[in-house]
Design a protein around this nucleic acid. Structure first.
Lengths: 397, 397
DNA sequence: CTTCTTTCATTGACAACAGAAAAGAATGAA
DNA sequence: TTCATTCTTTTCTGTTGTCAATGAAAGAAG
């Protein structure tokens, strides 16, 4: 027996997605504050939030305000995360991870599976099982799952749910969204993995409330999500943020892209492993072993990490010079080596950043691997509340 | 005797600035086409456009359509540039240039003056004279000047018309807009020079109709204006596009910014002069002499230009990898040496650009020096038609 | 203990805007 | 001549959000 489900999201006035997003990312917030942030009248806020409160998506926060305030005390609003569930799926080259989140993108359940068959059929079969399991879990919460998001690395067309090209999966023009929607009967969003993670950070994470920031992910590859003027950058051809192929040193090691000295050819896990082997003569098997060697005090190995940090710092310097963001968030599995290169990143950045750009704050923000799947869920939430159509607006010309 | 002046711009419906901008940058265009581009109904276009036609800002283009069309022939609209005039002023370290343009940003009159006194008072005096002369010229057209734009290099706060810091002028926190408005009684806009030029290109130039492009200016410095998602990028702290301080080579020549191998330390006019002197032993006085030497066949000098081209190309590659624009437009006085480094720019870009980013078209687009002042006028036009408030919109969070 | 001030929230009237649908206009095709 | 097609306009209608006034809930001031 399942409790009654709330109706579709009552986004019947255009300002609703904006207002809801403000409440979502700015915690409990008063109507007056919402009105100021959104640049609309308080009356408009009152009218917009009423249906949301009635539908249960927003609740009034009792008491706990900033006590010493003049005038009538404000009633803060917050999102009741429990009124809707979402599923986010991250697909890598050899595994899939899926999370069940609430409307506030808090992870409730996590499921993983290894991926033997990378073909579209194989991936759909594996992720389909994960999704089914999570849908069963969801029944325990008595709340319906309102959307599924997929995060895939590569060239993804969000608007039509197509994976144009994914090197890791060796996919070309796969209508993932369409197929997954057909299989599950639920709304499906498909987004590039880094952009999905960026959306999650923009709304719920270290980028909350910022209009200009960058998220740099360090690990098997070096990726980057950009938020400029409050909007996630997709580029004219759907590809952007390729910070991994910024060439830092024209005499640096060759990169698989054909250029030399790319950050990815210096600071990605494979590059580090390769370089540690070359410099120490020790055949480390993977990034973990290379890291252990460096932690053990091997000077040559430590130098490899130092060099990686410098490359990342310089690349971030370039990014900051170009875009002038307020913050750069470094994340990814590669942060395991944080202690070995964090200082180098900061130093190289400080040297590279020009003028006021140096005001940009560069910080590391470790994220568990589920965060990638959480990012996928965030895109599903975005779509559910009707925010994606708007924020993707043309900004005309 | 002066003809009757049109009233203030009738932007009484929110869609007017957008629609007017479309007509402005897409030449004669039919209402149906406007509706498609703007994403509004044809009815809305009809209604929005009528007051503009009545006020004389738009006129119906007779006949000359694309002849072989089915159905009722369309009536194209175009902007009547002659119905309003604007003044654009570009201030450099040693001179000021001012242009009188029409509403379509076509230059009608140009005036220059050398700048002996760079203090705010001195600049206001000199530019004030230029503006006065142009206002006199404007009377000959029988049309009122509706706004003045200033373009200044450095950190400029457009919203309040303040020059926060301009190294060339040695200004800090100068309320240029306020003072100029008080002196002239006209609306004044103040914008960073590269961003102003970018606006002009976005509306009237090589970037017309593109949502993602970059304008790279080569000359005494290396600058860059960015348009991402249809909006000019200003960065969180008002500074962006510092492509000149992208470091291309960690072992390159030192730059005044403290880093090494910046594009500006390799490819700016002063850097080229310095390097040509060092390599040839010939004491060339300025960029023109260095250029003459290279054109004369001096191998060492030619290599300096080749290296400059490579640096620019690599920097553009970085930019394109990060932002994925549709086009990069190279301009500036430095293009005088176009024949000496254009190939190198293209080659270096092709090597640096990753994947689909390489689809980006890199083209040179020589602009006369007045173009900088024209950019300033473009910002005045933008402000006049009420487009700046909108396009600078928050895109929330 | 009242009264004032301040801020937040709500209400109802109102104006503006955009969309839908239908009609009209102007052409080529059948 | 009639039809099909496309562009443009008109009228109507519903939605949105602002305005201005009002109420609510506190602290501050006398």
């Amino acid at each position: 027996m399942r409790t009654t489900l709330p109706e579709a999201f009552p986004a019947h006035t255009p300002a609703v997605p904006q207002i809801f997003t403000i409440v979502l990312s700015h915690g409990p917030v008063t109507r007056a504050e919402i009105a100021r942030r959104a640049g609309v009248s308080p009356a408009a806020v009152t009218k917009a939030v009423r249906p949301l409160i009635e539908a249960g998506y927003l609740v009034e926060e009792a008491g706990e305000d900033l006590p010493p305030a003049l005038g009538r005390p404000a009633n803060a609003l917050r999102v009741d995360g429990g009124r809707a569930l979402f599923i986010g799926v991250k697909v890598t080259g050899d595994s899939a991870i899926a999370v069940l989140t609430d409307l506030r993108c808090r992870i409730r359940v996590t499921r993983r599976a290894s991926l033997d068959d990378r073909s579209p059929d194989g991936v759909l079969a594996t992720t389909g099982e994960l999704v089914t399991e999570l849908l069963v879990e969801a029944e325990g919460f008595g709340v319906q799952v309102r959307g599924i998001g997929f995060a895939v690395s590569g060239d993804v067309v969000r608007t039509d749910g197509t994976v144009r090209y994914s090197p890791f999966l060796d996919w070309r023009d796969v209508p993932l969204g369409e197929r997954a929607a057909a299989a599950t009967g639920l709304p499906v969003t498909v987004e590039n993995d880094v952009r999905a993670l960026t959306v999650a950070e923009q709304w719920f994470g270290a980028g909350a409330g910022l209009t200009d920031f960058a998220l740099v992910t360090v690990g098997a590859g070096i990726g980057c999500g950009l938020v400029v003027g409050g909007r996630v950058v997709s580029g004219a051809h759907g590809v952007a943020g390729e910070i991994g192929h910024l060439s830092i040193d024209p005499t640096g090691p060759p990169c698989h892209c054909g250029n030399r000295g790319c950050v990815e050819a210096i600071a990605s896990d494979p590059a580090i492993v390769r370089e540690v082997r070359a410099r120490t003569g020790i055949h480390v098997a993977d990034a973990a072993e290379a890291l252990a060697l460096a932690r053990g005090g091997d000077t040559a190995a430590r130098q490899v990490y130092a060099r990686a940090g410098e490359a990342i710092g310089r690349a971030i310097g370039s990014l900051v010079n170009l875009l002038g963001p307020e913050r750069v968030i470094i994340s990814g599995e590669g942060l395991a080596a944080h202690d070995l290169f964090a200082d180098r990143i900061q130093d190289a950045f400080t040297v590279s950043a020009f003028g006021t750009a140096a005001r940009c704050e560069v910080s590391t923000h470790p994220l568990p691997f589920e965060a990638w799947a959480r990012g996928a869920a965030a895109t599903a939430i975005q779509s559910f509340i009707g925010s994606d159509s708007r924020s993707g607006g043309s900004g005309w010309r």
